[in-house]
Design a protein around this nucleic acid. Structure first.
Length: 490
RNA sequence: GGUUCCUUGGCCGAGUGGUUAGGUAGCGGUCUGCAAAACCGCGUACGGCGGUUCGAUUCCGCCAGGAACCUCCA
């Protein structure tokens, strides 16, 4: 009896069997990016993590609605500042662009990067700016229920009041009393009853570009509201999975819970999932820390910290080789070894169609499939899953070298395992050099190698080695086999 | 200061109260004209000090070092 999918629920701090609210269907909401600059390595982590989850849920046969928001309204950059400018507005002035032009520019890049990483697009990608009315309606519900108050054109969430009926801090394990004791008083918060109250609607200063009319005056929605409003709209007042980075657990997700609960009277998310951070020199990679490397820089190798370029699939594999709840440390050495490992995996996969079946098997394929399933069912343990696939790699290579044999049935099974787990679920794919597909180049290389084989036949090692090293110089590696040779382009 | 968490072989990174993680790098071997690839073999890692236990890397305590959150953040 196979164990079912279990996932770690941040809310209970333990693994739980995943059972959707509605049999056969499930909803997944993931916090997307704030599009005010290029996506960096850190953004790839949740994208790949929840892509893996999405792919696996689809594989299990669920009808999945996957929602990932785009924050294009911008959160307040710094409440202490009088102007209270938001990030997107600030960037817009810097670049002399319309705010929506900035949004579109970085959104386009984000989409391209996500496609390069072979992440499946979400079913719905709602934008905060397109859901101002929904956010205002949610504020009204919270006000009607008495958990918010209006001051001078802004609306704040009343955390203390909320905490009398519900509990503020259930997700992040905080309690309000401790928070009160430890909160320092920041300036510019005179409007709030308590420093930990947060804005649902913020009055716009005169120079603020992004603002909308509301019954409280011109303003813009608070930091945390869009996710509550949009998840509710597209997934319902109760839905299965909400994902995001660990750094969003507090205050963002805590506030989301409070908002949704204050409006509807009950909690909305059944399973909270949080991916850990990517670190660099032991420290979190973050835009605000200035220690980030963008995905485009990684793909091109154009960054002082990079020894070489790393392909999108190398990045994806690098991320999948660590469990999503562990920190993952960036280094050139780690990325290079990931690239090598991936190459080995993909080469074995490419060998699969060329294998011939024997009457009997000398290897055990049966356990492999079950091992893969067991690994991923255990809170998406992709590193273990990958380790099992490397068992398959050894088998494939042994069969290819005539050191082991597989029956036709086992060979089919092996093919199906790689197809399902490597390509469909881990979402890895071949990265062909486009030039390698050119028929002209193929024929030129074949011709050159034919000349080399003639030289080899005459034991003219000088010519044969010259051709091989020159081909290597232009990126074509040649491997001699017992009969003939193989070649490939980098 | 508060809350939570981490410390595994050169590097990345799983996992477990007693039995091989895996990748990569390194070493030895097979194969090969050589090289590469592949295959076979190898290293006896679990921060320190105590405790529980027949037995702890795995549980508990203390110490050291590091991280995340407490402000925007994936």
């Amino acid at each position: 009896m196979a164990k079912p999918l279990t996932i770690y629920n941040s809310l209970s701090r333990g693994k739980e069997v995943f059972e959707p609210l509605i049999p056969g269907k499930t909803g997944l909401y993931v916090c997307g990016p704030t599009v005010y600059s290029n996506a960096h390595l850190g953004h790839a982590r949740p994208a790949v993590t929840f892509d893996l989850l999405y792919r696996y849920l689809l594989h299990l046969g669920y009808k999945v609605r996957y929602v990932r928001n785009i924050t294009d309204v911008g959160h307040l950059e710094d409440e202490i500042e009088e102007s209270g400018e938001d990030k997107i507005v600030k960037k817009a002035r810097l670049e002399q662009l319309e705010p929506m032009e900035v949004v579109q520019k970085y959104l386009n890049t984000f989409h391209r990067n996500m496609a390069q990483l072979n992440t499946l697009p979400p079913c719905i990608e709602p934008r905060a700016s397109a859901h101002i009315i929904e956010q205002q309606l949610l504020i009204k519900r919270i006000l009607e229920n008495g958990f918010a108050y209006e001051v001078n054109g802004s609306v704040y969430f009343d955390v203390e009041k909320y905490n009398t009926r519900y509990r503020y801090g259930i997700l992040s394990g905080r309690n309000l009393e401790e928070m009160v004791a430890n909160t320092r008083n920041l300036e510019g918060q005179e409007e709030k009853k308590n420093p930990f109250d947060f804005a649902l609607w913020k009055k716009a200063s005169p120079g603020h570009i992004m603002q909308w009319p509301s019954e409280w005056g011109m303003g813009f929605p608070g930091w945390h509201l869009e996710c509550s409003a949009m998840s509710m709209k597209y997934l319902g007042e109760v839905f299965d999975i909400h994902g995001g980075g660990m750094d969003l657990q507090f205050p963002h997700h805590e506030c989301e819970i409070a908002q949704s609960t204050a409006a509807s009277g009950h909690s909305s998310v059944r399973y909270w999932m949080h991916n850990n951070m990517i670190t660099i020199n032991g420290q979190k990679m973050a835009r605000s820390l200035g220690n980030f490397i963008t995905l485009d820089e990684l793909f091109s190798g154009n960054h002082p910290l990079l020894d070489s370029a790393y392909s999108p699939m190398t990045i994806r594999f690098f991320i999948l080789q660590a469990h999503y709840r562990s920190t993952l440390d960036f280094s050139n050495e780690a990325l290079q070894s990931a690239g090598k490992g991936l190459e080995r995996l993909m080469k074995a996969a490419a060998l699969l169609p060329k294998l011939t079946a024997s009457a009997t098997s000398t290897v055990d394929i049966g356990a492999l499939e079950e091992n893969c399933r067991e690994a991923i069912n255990d809170d998406l343990n992709s590193p273990i899953l990958i380790a099992h696939l490397f068992d398959g790699v050894r088998i494939i290579n042994q069969v290819s070298e005539g050191l082991a044999s597989v029956s036709a049935e086992d060979l089919d099974k092996l093919k199906s395992i790689f197809h399902t787990w490597l390509f469909d679920i881990l979402g890895l794919r071949e990265e062909n050099n486009p030039a390698g597909n050119s028929e002209t180049i193929r024929q030129l290389v074949e011709l050159t190698l034919k000349i080399r084989m003639d030289a080899k036949a005459k034991k003219d090692w000088t010519t044969s080695d010259y051709i091989r090293s020159e081909l290597a110089r232009i990126g074509i590696s040649v491997k001699d086999k017992k009969e003939g040779c193989e070649w490939e382009m980098d």
